[in-house]
Amino acid sequence: MELKSDVIHQYLRPKKKFPHVWCSGCGLGVILGSMIRSIHSLDIPKDDVVVCSGIGCSSRLPVYVDFNTLHTTHGRAIAFATGVKVAKPRLKVIVVTGDGDCLAIGGNHFIHACRRNIDITVILANNWIYGMTGGQFSPTTPTEKFGSTAPYGNIEQPFNPCDLAISAGASYVARSTVYHVDQLDKMITGALNKRGFSVVEVLSNCHTYFGRLNKEGDPVTMLNYFKKHALPVQAWDKVPEEKRAGKFVTGLLHDVEKDEYCDNYEKLVERLQAKMESK
């Protein structure tokens, strides 16, 4: 059997841009590995993969991987990815983004891509904070938690990214964490296999800012938090409401079949061209 670490090295850029920019212990490395294993398990040729990102710690991921990579402006990765996908639908387009990038500045593009159900996979690293700019609260920071711009505790309500994606029309929505690596691999693989807009929210630790500002400790403590508070969707459905308190649901939350944007456009073109030929 192939070692998982060997697989990863096949997909890292030969002229490695290491050391990477992430803090040691950051969950983004786990996400990078999981994404590579998922692509590898599906045998998608490297030349056909486009990894697109915006701005933030998570958005630095594409530079390390040996695919077609597009590191764009803050919040706009999904809009760029939409152009790539529609212009060349055979490409497998993945967007790697964070909670601030995807849900604050990029929120509009996110919901409209869900609505179009365009065949793009979004890997959303949710660490409840803006890491790269130094720990400001984000659209997913829980109420009362601290950020550098919420020095007295956050008074806002957070988004639930998965609920948002489901109600906006995404066809595949899953949640996992950087602790539950096998589950994460499965969720990303499932998302890449889905014809339609797929979202995998990955809870990830930012011990440097979120952990420190909220006194939640080092990477290990934070991974333990994910371990203790995650409830797989099968169990979640069975437990009573009071037992869900303080926990979050993981696994495949939403998986439906519906028309995909590029397919619909292709059908439109075929219909029009058939009409022209018959004239």
Binding site: R76, A79, F80, A87
Partner: peptide, 18 residues
């Protein structure tokens, strides 16, 4: 697109794809 920001992004993405 959903706005002009996305419009500009989409045409750059499409151009990158050829």
């Amino acid at each position: 697109m959903e706005d002009e920001i996305a419009s500009m992004a989409s045409i750059i993405g499409a151009s990158c794809a050829g």
